[in-house]
């Protein structure tokens, strides 16, 4: 199966747009924090754009998605506006979590079928499994997709979830963004077998490895997994190999990462690489791609201005929202 047969040229340009939106948002965010205009910490997405965008693009709006803190592209693609996300980062009243949760945490919105994440990775896995179980329960042709990292694949809950997902034949897609580092700990200090997708076999589920810096490869893998899941063939574990290009969080200079490793992955930058591919294959010319970039720059600048001008939450509301129905 070649991905070009799955995607029209228009769709390929949309993928490029979403990746670029994610990249420019990220660069703007990092600059903002370096200028001291941020609130608390935040997490760069650099290097992860193809995974969050390619995966989210392969789903329908009725499918449920449970992203983590490196999946900005998925949040945006599923309908959270850049202004609402900046609002969340800046602790604003009209941010996704109304000032309740920090940076990219807690950005759930069931109107967009997004489940917000907690720091305790991989807790989105079993929660997404529960969403998938509800689709079986109601006999709905929907899938649930969630993301986690190589680091969280060492937690017992990773095993618990994959075992139950396979046992119950759940329409669940789990993407492990293997970005080589769990904070400062490299993969070889985390596990003996560095190919996480291989674990799928012992659970009796499908497992595939994809180039996490190739948006069309990610799209194709998720598209195939979703088709299988909707057809009743159960869950899929997708390992997307990539590299976290900046530190774990904004404060982290990541001096522990060898320069050569970063140089290798810089040559595989998912956004630049896809831009070149679109040019090479005649999908668009320089002018068209530059126009998309200009549109994205304006969109992000407007979103940030809107978020910075939006109000902070009223301290009198601090106790509101703890319970539903009150």
């Amino acid at each position: 199966m070649t991905t070009s047969r799955l995607l029209t040229n228009q769709q390929r340009l949309e993928l490029f747009y979403w990746m670029l939106l994610t990249r420019i948002f990220d660069e703007t965010m990092v600059n903002l924090w370096k200028q001291g205009r941020g609130v608390g910490g935040t997490f760069s997405q650099r290097g992860h754009e193809a995974i969050s965008v390619g995966a989210a693009y392969a789903l329908g709006p009725e499918d449920v998605i449970a992203p983590m803190h490196r999946d900005l592209g998925a949040y945006l693609l599923r309908g959270l506006t850049p202004a609402r996300v900046f609002g969340n980062l800046l602790g604003r009243a009209d941010g996704v979590s109304r000032g309740r949760d920090a940076n990219l945490h807690g950005m759930g919105d069931l109107r967009h079928n997004i489940i917000g994440f907690i720091s305790h990775l991989p807790h989105s896995l079993p929660v997404a499994l529960g969403a998938a179980m509800s689709f079986i329960y109601r006999n709905e042709p929907r899938v649930a997709l969630t993301f986690t990292g190589d680091g969280a694949s060492s937690a017992g809950l990773f095993h618990e979830t994959l075992n139950m997902a396979s046992l119950w034949n759940a329409p669940l897609i789990v993407i492990v963004e293997n970005n080589q580092y769990a904070y400062s700990t490299p993969l070889h200090q985390q596990m003996k077998v560095p190919d996480i997708a291989r674990r799928a076999e012992i659970y009796g589920m499908a497992g595939v490895t994809v180039d996490g810096n190739d948006v069309e490869a990610v799209y194709a893998a998720v598209h195939a997994a979703a088709t299988r899941a909707r057809g009743g063939s159960g869950p899929t574990l997708i390992e997307a190999k990539t590299m976290r290009m900046l530190g774990h969080a904004i404060h982290d200079g990541a001096e522990y990462v060898p320069k050569e490793l970063l140089e290798y992955w810089e040559g595989r930058d998912p956004v630049k690489r896809y831009r070149q591919k679109l040019l090479d294959e005649g999908v668009a010319d320089e002018t068209e791609l530059t126009e998309i970039a200009q549109r994205v720059e304006v969109e992000i600048a407007d979103a940030l201005a809107q978020a910075e001008a939006s109000p902070l939450p009223d301290p009198a509301t601090v106790e509101q929202g703890v319970y539903a129905g009150e």
Partner: peptide, 15 residues
């Protein structure tokens, strides 16, 4: 797998 199935119940409840 109490951790897993309680969390799965959370996912069901969210739906």
């Amino acid at each position: 797998a109490e951790l897993g199935f309680v969390a799965a119940a959370t996912g069901m409840a969210l739906m």
